[in-house]
Design a protein around this nucleic acid. Structure first.
Lengths: 205, 205
DNA sequence: CTGCCGATATATCGGACCGATAGATTGCTC
DNA sequence: GAGCAATCTATCGGTCCGATATATCGGCAG
């Protein structure tokens, strides 16, 4: 799940770990307060998979080499050349690869049932196509409807001794209904505008 | 966090692991779908701490010995007596101890900033006293107010290119405001009824 | 200039947690 | 009485997080 977030952020530009964490905090906000203890292992995982590439820069900064776009060929060569360098201020700047972009779309496509992962997918919705978006939205709405039924059943069957549990359940019911209505608006908007937003990948006439 | 849930459930009666999981599912519902992979290690942890006691029963079931109330003295003796028994159908029935009840109150008292742990504490609010309840409710409201400000700042500073991120943030703002209002009602109710619910532990004239 | 401080930056460790799975027993059904 | 689903306890690999270690950077006080 954190891999989706990393790839989604890196898709907009290359960053090093610390910046990445800050962007994750601002974009994802309340969902998933990523810590270094999960960020760096995840970056290593992604690097092993070939989804991201790391370039170590010296104190001259990243301006010495243009890293916009997908990193392949000479970037990888440059990286291996500078790999062993352990001079002062070695910032590792990460960039997404073509493998990483495919992985991003793949992660976006697979279903998200809980609130956290759905919100994260929604934050990166611009990277996938209309049908996928609709599928995710409708699946989420179905999950919420099911949960609404379940909570209502529990609310009806429960012995009424505890006002706090009851307040919790009632508020959960209200929140869930609000979420369902919100999803309905998103679905309607998606259906209405499905002819102008067909292409997911961006740079395209 | 899962320890709080276990102790809160066990406070109402002794259960074995499988029942415990079912109760956790129904009481906590959407929050924290506990799995066996966390339930059993947590039970072992609690047993090591002396917060819960496990009794292995044979096929005659738990009815052979009364286990209501706190398990001390003869219950512990009974447990150690039957410990090595590995006959057929050894269900391990767990019960909360006095140490566990103190631990429950302690866990309830410490602050809960995120939604999950706050909801869990609210589900077991009846086990702590009025001032603690008020403190937790007000702290939660303060956290939500802060988050609301943060989201609004992010919403104002953000470049408006992405409608999905914007929809996410707006909905988050609405949900947070709704939660704050709900907390306000709970706080008012708590303040109004603070003279009749002073004693937390139950059995008391 | 030097020493100190807070922000920046990378990385690791132990432990909590989860999904999947194993393995054993019970009871129901045909 | 054999098969089969449900019950029940338990573990494993792996992910994630909080705390922590280490080192460099810019600034500025003495």
């Amino acid at each position: 799940m954190i891999e989706l977030a990393i790839l989604g952020i890196l898709k907009e530009g290359d960053l090093h770990g610390y910046e990445l964490k800050k962007h994750l905090r601002t974009v994802l906000g309340p969902l998933s307060n990523v810590s270094f203890g999960s960020l760096y292992p995840a970056l290593n995982r992604l690097e092993r998979q070939g989804a991201v590439t790391a370039v170590v820069t010296d104190e001259a900064g990243a301006a010495t080499m243009p890293m916009t776009g997908s990193l392949t060929g000479e970037a990888a060569a440059f990286r291996s050349r500078r790999r062993a360098t352990r001079g002062p201020r070695n910032k590792k700047v990460y960039g997404i690869t073509q493998v990483g972009e495919r992985r991003l779309v793949e992660l976006l496509s697979e279903p998200a049932d809980d609130e956290r992962s759905f919100g994260m997918k929604l934050a990166f919705f611009r990277w996938c196509d209309g049908p996928t978006r609709l599928r995710l939205l409708e699946r989420r709405r179905a999950a919420l409807l099911e949960r609404l039924e379940e909570t209502r059943r529990a609310l009806a069957a429960r012995d009424r001794d505890d006002p706090y549990v009851q307040a919790l359940m009632e508020h959960d019911t209200e929140s869930t209904m609000s979420d369902i209505a919100w999803l309905g608006r998103l679905i309607a908007r998606e259906r209405a505008g499905d002819d102008r937003t067909r292409e997911p990948t961006g740079g395209h006439p």
